[in-house]
């Protein structure tokens, strides 16, 4: 018995530990998000929250539901596989509200060379031109329709 009496202070120290553990466990139960561990060691609801972020690019399917006329021009041309927003930019806002949000006017001088300027680094089969030599400064759309850029004079493919 006296061993326990003389070791009493140790039990007090141990008691502190137990108390701290109980407090910790109680706080833990309160603080840890409810969906934690739903799919793995993370907050399950985070997946839904991330999925719920809004989009900026509407996607070409959305564009094509209205702009069927452009699709008709595009579909047989060289740019058939180029999605609308690759050139026109992100336009989900326009798709939401086509009446009040209008797409910005595009500058072909910037836009066309972004892809088609000559450089040794591009894949060899990709059509490339040096703008000054090719058109002597004329705007690209003088000869090329961007939605189907093969030259009409040369016989559109």
């Amino acid at each position: 018995m006296s061993v326990f009496k003389d070791a009493g202070h140790l039990f007090r120290f141990a008691g502190l530990f137990v108390l701290a553990f109980i407090v910790f466990w109680a706080i833990r139960g309160y603080v840890v998000p409810k969906s934690f561990g739903q799919y793995g060691h993370y907050r399950g609801n985070a997946i839904g929250e991330i999925a719920a972020r809004s989009v900026h690019f509407a996607g070409h399917d959305t564009c094509e539901t209205c702009h069927t006329d452009v699709l008709d021009v595009k579909k047989n041309g060289k740019h058939a596989h180029v999605n609308c927003e690759a050139c026109h930019g992100a336009l989900a806002k326009h798709a939401d509200d086509p009446a009040s949000v209008t797409p910005p006017k595009l500058d072909t001088a910037v836009l066309c060379v972004r892809c088609h300027a000559t450089t040794a680094a591009k894949p060899k089969g990709f059509p490339q031109v040096s703008a000054e030599e090719h058109s002597t400064g004329l705007p690209c759309e003088t000869c090329h329709q961007p939605h189907s850029p093969a030259m009409v004079a040369g016989g559109a493919k």
Binding site: I47, G48, A51, A52, R53, S54, V55, A58, G59, D61, T62, T65, C66, H67, A95, D96, P98, A99, T102
Partner: peptide, 23 residues
């Protein structure tokens, strides 16, 4: 013509589900 165009009903339904965005 395009500015006056309201989204076609089918497209509107498709786009709405994208817009609303929640799981």
């Amino acid at each position: 013509r395009r500015q006056m165009l309201i989204l076609l009903p089918a497209a509107a339904v498709a786009w709405k589900s994208v817009l609303a965005g929640t799981p």
